[in-house]
Design a protein around this nucleic acid. Structure first.
Lengths: 152, 152
DNA sequence: TATTGTTATACTCTATAACTATA
DNA sequence: TATAGTTATAGAGTATAACAATA
């Protein structure tokens, strides 16, 4: 029965899109396990890092930068606020600027370290020079498909 | 306010893992839209293609090949069966061999065409030679992280 | 009119636990 | 004991629609 696994014909293996998906899913799972030790989900960590780098940023701006819908940003920001990682201050009457608290900054730092370690592992698993080429080529892929919201 | 978007500092942009995730998500979304016109979800299409290439394959074998848990394969196979795309025949008493029906074969062919077109678009969006390098390098990424189920 | 934040809701994918029946 | 299939359930991410308040 184990033999059957090796004899399998998988047409998907020839597809670059499929390989990208598998690689991305596996790497995300691995990073998620690392971030879990800090008590953060991948999305929460990303948002936290973006706020830390851009104090006063609004939820809508974060959503546009990370491709997260406004509707999904609301509970995300509420949770980070509830846990004391960020604070929200009225900036506009309808919008609010987000900043990272002292407690949040500590989590942010550890999340960034985990991500950096993770990224080094990725680069080390690739043939020399490929990481740099990928870094400059990948944005074309997710901008090729109109990933951005059409209007919503 | 639009200016603020351009002035954003995004530390994640420097991370290869994040770029891979964004690219993969965008490409998957695009492929999903194509497959939707055939009436298939990405997962359904993948399973259908694998069965078509390996007549008599079992659900567990599919799960191991595509990294889908047995528990999630059950409703998936049931749906493909219900829609008349595959048939299931007892092979073992506890396992059942899956084969693609005539109707299923037609959907499978169209799904494969869509995926192939999609993959060509991906390759065309990359610098010359990068696609081939990626094709051989990516498997190392999703095998580096112990993506496989530990025992389940 | 357009934008911000919010709520409610639904769907997909994924994950675990537990059960049965077979091997 | 281990494996195949199944069910139930939960969590995460993402999607749309609709609303109030503000610009």
């Amino acid at each position: 029965m184990d033999i059957a696994r090796a004899l399998l014909t998988n047409p998907l293996d020839d597809l670059l899109g499929y390989q990208l998906r598998r690689a991305s899913a596996a790497l995300m799972g691995e990073l998620a396990r690392e971030l879990d030790r800090i008590g953060l989900k991948a999305t929460e960590a990303s948002v936290l890092i973006l706020i830390d780098a851009n104090p006063g940023i609004t939820q809508s701006e974060i959503g546009r930068a990370l491709n997260i819908k406004r509707a999904n940003m609301a509970p995300l920001a509420a949770m980070l606020d509830l846990r004391g990682f960020i604070s929200r201050q009225k900036a506009d009457g309808r919008s609010q600027g987000l900043i990272v608290t002292t407690v949040g900054a500590d989590h942010c730092r550890r999340a960034q370290e985990a991500m950096r370690r993770h990224d080094i592992r990725i680069r080390d698993a690739l043939p020399k020079g490929l990481a740099a080429k990928l870094q400059s080529a990948l944005p074309a892929l997710w901008q090729m498909s109109s990933e951005q919201e059409p209007a919503a």
